[in-house]
Amino acid sequence: MTNLPKDLKQLRQDDHPPVVHFAVLDKLLNLGRANSLWPMTFGLACCAIEMMATGASRFDLDRFGAGVFRPAPKQSDVMIVAGTISRKMAPAIVTLYEQMPHPKWVIAMGNCAISGGPFVFDGQYGIVEGADRIIPVDVYIPGCPPRPEALIEGLLKLEEQLTGSRRFPRVDPEAAP
């Protein structure tokens, strides 16, 4: 079993920076990457149900080029950690993450993946309190579970991080009364 770090220090994805940079080519590649973020078919708990709903025809992730859920880590670009990470599952998640080729991104979907969510209490022994304790996370989507729109928003945020601009309009949720 992997040893899990105790502190909540956030890991960033600069463990393998590219050796040579080509400014224009990199921009072009990032544009391509941002519009074909293939997620891994990988659900851990109830949040995965919302992830499946997002992939289905009502919300249709294919509109953003992200609907190609890949069954193998070596074919995928983004890992959507959707659900509760139990201590038993953690080594498998780390292995899957390490099997993904660079560049790769991680989306923590749902409160369980962000911080352990409703399972956090003093003396709990079965849950990893947040995906960012075991792998670097790029985008966080809170909610229990988040709505499919929130997952779309998370993918758009990732696109924004890659290309530096946003292709789609921003949506303001209706102001509370």
Partner: peptide, 13 residues
């Protein structure tokens, strides 16, 4: 009615 929250750090929430 916030339904589309997403951000780059957990502290945003």
């Amino acid at each position: 009615k916030e339904y589309n929250l997403a951000g780059y750090s957990a502290g945003d929430f």
